[in-house]
Design a protein around this nucleic acid. Structure first.
Length: 233
DNA sequence: GCGACAG
DNA sequence: ATCTTGTCGC
């Protein structure tokens, strides 16, 4: 009999959050994911959104050091309000399906450096478009209480039809008969991106906010600014 | 057993 | 993710 995943509920700045032991082995990670998945909220439960955040992680020293970037943009003008970069020792290798356990420690360190958290955060990687519905965007939302959206450049799981070659066109990402996300053509003639609900945000709102953060590039501005910082460009 | 596999 | 320069296509 496996020991139960130790999960507790708490509160952060008035918001319900979840805390849990930080595992180091894959089987423990998967057990925690299964337990956490029950607490995910894919209904809209967000404050008036005045700022949107971007979270992205990069690495240095051949992966030994994690560089985590958290940026805050004005939701209306997309003007950059604040940037934070944290460098922490990397604790886990990359294992498909367990990305959040590798990236969240750094993300939390970067968020802590911000003078004010964003009202909503777009996270690099998937939200519920994950084998156990607990991608990095969803996991980070649960742990911080922040409304989150998953914005990924590649598919992890699920099937989808071709996306029409028109800016803003999208098709559902399906797992069996369940819609777990959307495959979005963010601009003409580029590979589509994968949008999914993270936590406290519906897929419809996730798409709407992603479109609001898009300008002339494939990725939303939040992701671009955070990526530039995390990868030292 | 074989192929797929976010960052 | 990261290692890396020029180059093909819209």
């Amino acid at each position: 009999m496996q020991p139960a995943a130790h999960i507790t509920t708490s509160e952060l700045k008035g918001r319900p959050v979840v805390a849990h032991d930080w595992p180091h082995d894959a089987p423990s990670c998967r057990r925690i994911q299964q337990a956490l998945a029950e607490r995910v909220d894919t209904q809209d439960d967000l404050p008036p959104v005045q700022t949107i955040g971007g979270i992205d992680i990069g690495f240095e020293d051949g992966g030994r050091t994690t560089r985590a970037a958290a940026v805050v943009l004005d939701a209306e003008t997309l003007e950059v309000r604040e940037k934070a970069l944290a460098r922490v020792p990397t604790r886990m290798p990359y294992i498909p399906g367990l990305l959040s356990f590798r990236e969240i420690p750094g993300a939390l360190a970067a968020l802590e450096q911000l003078s004010a958290l964003p009202d909503l955060a777009l996270v690099d990687g998937h939200g519920i478009a994950h084998p156990r519905r607990l991608g990095v965007a969803t996991h980070l939302g649960l742990v911080t209480g922040l409304p989150t959206i998953g914005v990924a450049k590649k598919r992890l799981t699920g099937q989808h039809d071709d996306v029409p070659n028109e800016r803003g066109a999208w098709v559902p990402l399906l797992d069996k008969d369940e819609t777990i996300g959307a495959v979005l053509r963010s601009r003409v003639s580029v590979k589509p991106i994968f949008i999914s609900a993270g936590h406290r945000v519906s897929l419809e709102s996730a798409l709407a906010w992603t479109l609001k953060a898009l300008t002339r590039y494939r990725l939303p501005e939040t992701t671009r600014v955070a990526d530039r910082l995390a990868s030292n460009r």
